[in-house]
Design a protein around this nucleic acid. Structure first.
Lengths: 144, 144
DNA sequence: ATTCGTGCAAACCCTTTGCAAAGAG
DNA sequence: CTCTTTGCAAAGGGTTTGCACGAAT
C-alpha cells in the first residue's frame, strides 16, 4: 500500500517533470512542488495560497521563488493569470477553459463551467498582434 | 464666441452637476473636474491619468481625492473599474459597453467596439447574487 | 568555471487611511 | 453649526529586485 502511494507520487512527479521539460523549463524540486499545487487543484490560486500549500509543515520554497516561478510558468505558457481582483493575481493551468464570477465585495472568484457561457465573434486583434486567449469575468454582488 | 465657449462650459458643468446629484453624490468642484475627465474621454483612464488631466497647470485635486472620488463614483454606479492590468486599475463611464484587448507585455488596453463581440448565454449567478456586468478581456501579444 | 536557480530582505508602486483644515447645506 | 469633503503624509500590501549562496553541467 505504501509502495503504491509512493509509486503514484513518483509517477506524478515524473509526469510533471516531463511537462516542465516540454515547456522548456528546467525541472527543480521547487518548481515541481509549485506545479503540483497548480495542477492538482485545477482552480484559481493566489501566490499566497501556493506559498501556503507548498510549505505545509517545513518551508520548502521561499516567497521570491513562488513569484519568480509563477511568472516563469506564465511566460512559458503553462499557466495563466486571472485578473479580476484589483488587489491580487490568481493563477490557473492554461488548459482550463472556464470563466469566472467575481464577487466585487469579497474578492472571491467562482468558476463558471465553460459550456455555460459562449463568446461569439471574437474580434481580430489589431495589426501585428496575436490572440492569447479570452477571459470573461461576470461581476456579481451578494444581495443583502 | 468667447461667450459661447464659456456658455458651453457652464452648460457642461451644470449637466455634470445634475448627473452627480441624480446618483446621490454631492457636487463639489473637485468631483465635477474628475467627472469631466471621465466623461469627455469615453475611454479607460487610470487614476494617475485622471490626476494629470485634472491638474493641468495648477493643482486642483490631490491624489487622495482622486482615489476617494473614483471609488465613490464606482459605488454609486457612475463609472466602472476595468481590471485587466495586474498593476493598476482603469476606469470608464459605466454606459460604455465595449470590451478590451489587453497587451500582456505593455499593459496597454485597446477598445473593442461592442458590436464586434458577443457573449451568449450569460450564466445565472450563484444563489443570492445579482449580476452587475460582464467584462471580456482578449489577451493579445505583439508578434515579434 | 560558468551558468542557472533559490532565498532573504529591502525596495517598489499603486492604493488606502488617519487626522486636521476647508467647504457645503 | 454640523456633517461632509479635501489634502497631506504616512501606512499598507502584493509583487519585484539586488545580491549572495548553492546546485548543476
Amino acid at each position: 500500500m505504501e509502495a503504491t502511494v509512493l509509486g503514484e507520487r513518483a509517477a506524478i512527479t515524473s509526469e510533471i517533470t516531463d511537462l516542465l521539460r516540454k515547456h522548456g523549463i528546467t525541472s527543480t524540486l521547487q518548481r515541481v512542488e509549485i506545479a503540483q499545487v497548480l495542477f492538482s487543484k485545477l482552480q484559481h490560486v493566489s501566490a499566497e495560497q501556493v506559498l501556503e500549500k507548498v510549505n505545509r509543515g517545513r518551508g520548502i520554497v521561499s516567497k521570491a521563488t513562488i513569484y519568480n516561478t509563477l511568472r516563469l510558468f506564465v511566460e512559458k505558457g503553462l499557466i495563466k493569470e486571472i485578473i479580476a481582483d484589483p488587489t491580487k493575481v490568481f493563477y490557473e493551468p492554461i488548459s482550463t477553459d472556464h470563466h469566472h464570477f467575481y464577487d466585487v465585495d469579497s474578492g472571491e472568484l467562482i468558476d463558471i463551467r465553460s459550456d455555460a457561457i459562449k463568446v461569439d465573434a471574437i474580434p481580430q486583434p489589431p495589426q501585428g498582434y496575436s490572440t492569447l486567449g479570452v477571459d470573461v469575468v461576470v461581476r456579481v454582488r451578494a444581495m443583502r
